[in-house]
Design a protein around this nucleic acid. Structure first.
Lengths: 347, 347
DNA sequence: TGTTAGCACTCTTATCAATCGAGTGCTAAC
DNA sequence: GTTAGCACTCGATTGATAAGAGTGCTAACA
């Protein structure tokens, strides 16, 4: 069966109505509140067809229809584009200028949550492809070195390195020089074994320290950073009756606590480079089991070259996709503006 | 009316029973399952007295009794002490050795949550009274300095400082020397105006930089650190029917999202130095409105001199206070061991 | 005097039937 | 192709009834 324009309009009306009310919507409602001027009986016939096509279902006989995942998918893919993607009511975000990346991310998550009434999550930029700018070792005390690593975007990391031997300040100076000349401008991903052994060979008696430093760099920058995901507005899900019963809510909130899973989701979605960096997962499409009663919309932002992070919004399947996508686009815009104009002052 | 031993025993039995079942407990239950060998009628009389004293209430006529806040308070203050405070089943915590304070805190929160089945929160140590160990400025690029601040307990902070003038490496060297000789061993709280002006006077042409550095230090160490609270096990509250209905759960989870309030609570409770650093807030006693259906137990830990943080556990009023207090004590012990023996290797 | 058995009373919970209403599917007429 | 009409289904609501848990009170007992 084919989805003609009228069917499409009806599906659209059903989805819109269900978004607002959260209640199954019946034929009479559509008949009255759409501009189709058709009787409920006609609508009923069409709805019957739509159901056959798997786009809507009845929760039970003698109830109205609600959209299926497939229905939403169609809506998001085809019908949503017909409207302006940036909805009218979307204000500019007033992003306070803050030095600390972490604070800014938290702030953004909160802002988005308040703005959309959904739960939000945001991952810190991933540093793997960021270029190293500056490395500095310094003597902390008797047998510890402090390594400070600065990468593009002024991301700063510290690690403490244990050393057995006592180093003179000349040693440290030359180590610093060695590290900086060899590593400057490289991304972490690019630091290959070849480079490492090259540096080591030049390090003279201090090869072991170089090894430790490189390990520390790799560790400091990669691994546990992956888990930096901030969530906000968790309790917003209680605003949607279909999600707020104990068992469901518990699952979802639990999923929002599982940072590892969230990270995976966010990273995966950032790899798909279609849709202008915006991804929509409807119901079962979400890779996170506990979120299959929800829809998730993610957007990948980019602060500087290769410095990407992802924002996610979690809400009921009947979430206002237009608004969410619009809001995310707006936010991306503002972020771009903010960071291209003032490429400074962030940790 | 006076609380004789028998009444006490009955109250104890009621509380214990209610802890386990979550259901109001009736006279017959007590009659059967306590070692008092009294008929239910007698228990009823005593319960009537206990109710008059405000220690227990009936949710409705013809229901069993449940303890009031006052009843729990009495239990926690007097009766709980009679038993061993460290319950049998409490295992040692296997605290993985980790470099990063942040990771360790998260890990601890999670561990506690899994262990107790309650929601947990933990605040990072407050640095205000920590002594500065080491400050280092270095040139990051044309007009920015990187300041690295190391404090006791190997806490490391960075900030970027904008400067107009270009500094020579000699300038930086002397600034470093100046800062370290004057600030070493001081706590942030101790850096008075007097000291600041003294340093500034010695700084020669670079007074403004010194000002900026000191501001940066103060800012980096104090303010936004206050908000470092990690929570875990939020969804555990769904395990307790009396908390898991939509409205209540939403409130509580919301409260656990409000880091500012949590911080206040945790800091306040760490100031009370009684009870071996352990505080119990029952119901309305909690300063956080949204948590008044819960009880909160907090424990203050101390990593090094003046380096204190607080752990909190949030659960239903009928939480197992013995276990919680015992567990927290145990954890404190383990932390103490860990940090006194190996006072190294943490950020 | 303290304890206990017995009983009436209260209140919650579960169950069942009846009713209502929203919404459908189908048919026949336009 | 559209619509009016009608029978039908099924969830939600209501009310009545019964069961059960627990109490408070009284009277009897040790």
């Amino acid at each position: 069966m084919e989805l003609d324009e009228r069917k499409e309009k009806i599906l659209y009306a059903i989805i819109r109505n269900y978004q607002e009310t959260g209640e199954p919507v019946g034929s009479r409602t559509i008949s009255k509140y759409s501009d189709l001027n058709l009787s409920s009986a006609t609508i009923r016939n069409e709805m019957s067809d739509l159901e056959e096509m798997g786009l809507i279902v009845q929760p039970h006989t003698s109830a109205g229809r609600i959209p299926t995942d497939k229905g939403y998918r169609l809506y998001v893919d085809k019908m949503m584009l017909k409207n302006d993607i940036v909805p009218a009511g979307t204000d500019d975000f007033i992003l306070q200028k803050v030095d600390r990346m972490e604070l800014m991310l938290k702030q953004m998550a909160k802002l988005l949550a308040v703005n959309t009434n959904y739960a939000t999550m945001i991952s810190a930029p991933r540093y793997g492809r960021t270029k190293l700018k500056f490395i500095q070792l310094s003597q902390m005390d008797e047998n510890r070195l402090l390594a400070v690593i600065v990468a593009e975007g002024n991301i700063i990391k510290n690690t403490v390195i244990d050393v057995e031997e006592k180093l003179t300040s000349e040693d440290i100076l030359s180590l610093n020089l060695l590290l900086n000349t060899n590593l400057n401008g490289l991304t972490v991903d690019e630091i290959s074994l070849g480079i490492i052994s090259k540096i080591k060979s030049q390090a003279g008696e201090h090869t072991d320290i170089i090894g430790k430093v490189l390990d520390a760099i790799a560790e400091a920058i990669s691994e546990e950073e992956e888990l930096k995901v901030y969530t906000s507005g968790t309790t917003n899900i209680f605003k949607y009756p279909e999600l707020s019963d104990g068992s469901r809510a518990s699952k979802i909130i639990n999923a929002l606590e599982e940072k590892q899973q969230l990270t995976n989701l966010l990273i995966d979605s950032s790899l798909d480079e279609d849709n202008k960096g915006i991804q929509v997962y409807i119901g079962d499409e979400t890779p996170i089991q506990n979120m299959k009663d929800c829809s998730v919309v993610t957007a990948t932002y980019e602060l500087a070259d290769g410095l990407k992070g992802t924002i996610g919004i979690v809400g009921p399947k009947r979430m206002n996709y237009e608004k969410v996508v619009g809001t995310l686009n707006k936010l991306k815009e503002n972020l771009d503006d903010m960071f291209s104009k003032e490429d400074e002052h962030n940790e």
